[in-house]
């Protein structure tokens, strides 16, 4: 990696001030994506701003009418949370399909979402759970529904200088399933991913890797086929991805119905 300046702010305000300085500033959470991009020289950066010294950005806990998931919560912490395991086994199932044990112990929930990969594994189940992103900025705080958070590959609704401070999940229990379709059984990226969850009688469906962003769709094969817009890439063709949406959505809906 090329040399960079490095900061460890203690508060959001400090972090915000650092972000506002001229130059290419980059937030560091788990680092499993940022370091790869820096090593491959896909990104260049002047200052890395490590968020880990800021209190209150990590952990899972029930708070009033919702469950708080700190964006710096690592994937393995998320899966190990009893709260999560009890309410949303689908999230535990999803985490176990992600990366490797070593990567799950480093990658963060916030990092997975803020990188805005169309194939981000956490996105489809969280879309089903109606998660909301709480965002801090120098001009104040705001809440962005996850459905409106992703704008395109690598693009989110975060304005320059804004920092994700909470992934907020409504407390309702959900049963569901996550199907990650890929070649290998670990350490792989999805061609297609499908999350399906029933919250009470409400069945919800979301897709990954088949559109510029992860998408929530109405719970039917027809709707999923209508909404998906996959591309050809090194992993699979668009045609195949479309057909897999058909097969996997049907299976996911059947599994949740049973």
């Amino acid at each position: 990696m090329r040399a960079f300046a490095y900061e460890e702010p203690r508060t959001l305000a400090e972090a915000g001030a650092l972000m506002a300085r001229p130059g290419r500033n980059q937030l560091l959470a788990g680092g499993t994506d940022l370091l790869v991009r820096l090593k491959r020289r896909e990104w260049t950066v002047d200052t890395v701003i490590n968020l880990k010294r800021i209190a209150g950005l990590r952990g899972v806990e029930a708070r009033g009418d919702h469950v708080f998931v700190g964006p710096l919560t690592t994937l393995d912490e998320l899966a190990a949370s009893e709260l999560v395991a009890k309410r949303w086994p689908i999230l535990v199932e999803t985490v176990h399909e992600m990366g490797s044990p070593q990567v799950r112990a480093m990658s963060t929930a916030g990092g997975n979402l803020c990188n805005a990969s169309p194939a981000a594994d956490l996105a489809p189940p969280l879309l089903c759970l109606d998660a909301t992103m709480k965002v801090w900025g120098l001009r104040g705080e705001r809440h962005v529904p996850l459905r409106e958070f992703f704008l395109g590959p690598g693009k989110t609704a975060l304005e320059p200088g804004e920092i994700l401070t909470e992934i907020r999940i409504p407390p309702a229990l959900a049963k569901g399933c996550f199907i990650k379709f890929c070649t290998r059984r670990a350490m792989d990226l999805a061609f297609v991913s499908v999350a399906c969850a029933a919250v009470g009688k409400d069945v919800r469906l979301a897709l990954g890797a088949v559109a510029p962003t992860p998408i929530r769709v109405l719970p039917s094969v027809e709707e999923a086929m209508k909404r998906c817009a996959p591309i050809d890439d090194v992993r699979a063709s668009a045609e195949y991805r479309r057909e897999m949406v058909r097969v996997l959505v049907r299976r996911a809906l059947a599994r949740v119905a049973s």
Binding site: Y6, L35, S100
Partner: peptide, 27 residues
């Protein structure tokens, strides 16, 4: 590989296996 894909650089950090190639030393 230096990009976290092979696991050859695994070390235990506070008892957990991590890939040391993707951990910034200050962390």
């Amino acid at each position: 590989c230096s990009t976290g894909d092979c696991g050859a650089c695994t070390v235990l950090v506070n008892g957990k296996p991590l890939v040391s190639c993707l951990m910034l030393a200050p962390d």
